[in-house]
Computed example of a mutant assay.
Amino acid sequence: MTNAVPFVHHFAVIASDFEASERIFTAALGALGVEALHRADGVAEYWRPEEDRLSFSLERARHDTSVTRRVHVAFAAEDRAGVDRFHAAAVSAGAVSRHAPRFWPEYRAYCAFLRDPDGNNIEALHKEGDD
């Protein structure tokens, strides 16, 4: 059974260095076909052009907001190549590699893990079978 209602509709991260984080997320998510389709006043909202839902936003920290730190966010990739592109693009844009792309049998997924400038654990994964 497939549910047409998404589990999570959108998620936001507040960045201490908006420009550095925007560079990383734009590169990494772009490798997965996710674009920054709205940018204004210290906010970048990312989603796939054909889907007006399931979005991720990056926001500049303001004097009355706390920075998001040590959260774990995982983005789905269509295939292993997408995970590889995600990792390479993010590292080129300034992210720190925590784990290079590889198969994780305990998750039955091919994953890569990164750290953004605020210490958030950013992942791309492609779910696979028990092979």
Rank of each mutant, 00 (worst) to 15 (best):
W104P: 07
P49H: 06
G82M: 03
A27S: 06
R85V: 02
Y107Q: 06
A61N: 11
H10E: 13
H63R: 12
R80K: 13
V71T: 14
P49Q: 07
V71H: 09
V96N: 06
A61W: 03
V34I: 15
R53Q: 14
R60Q: 14
F7H: 11
E59I: 14
A100E: 15
S21R: 01
A61I: 10
W47F: 06
E50T: 13
N3G: 06
R53S: 15
F113N: 00
S55N: 08
W104A: 10
A20F: 06
L29C: 04
S92F: 09
A15P: 02
S57R: 09
F25W: 01
A27L: 01
F11Y: 12
A31S: 11
F25G: 00
I14K: 04
A93M: 03
F7S: 11
F7G: 09
Y107T: 04
S66M: 07
P117N: 02
E51Y: 05
A77L: 03
Y110S: 02
I122L: 11
A28H: 03
H99D: 08
G33M: 07
L125N: 04
V71R: 08
F103P: 07
P6M: 05
P6S: 03
L58R: 00
R80Q: 15
E106N: 08
V8R: 06
A93K: 04
Y107F: 15
F86Y: 04
P49M: 12
R70D: 14
A88Y: 02
P105F: 07
E45I: 15
H126Q: 03
L114P: 04
A61H: 09
T68L: 04
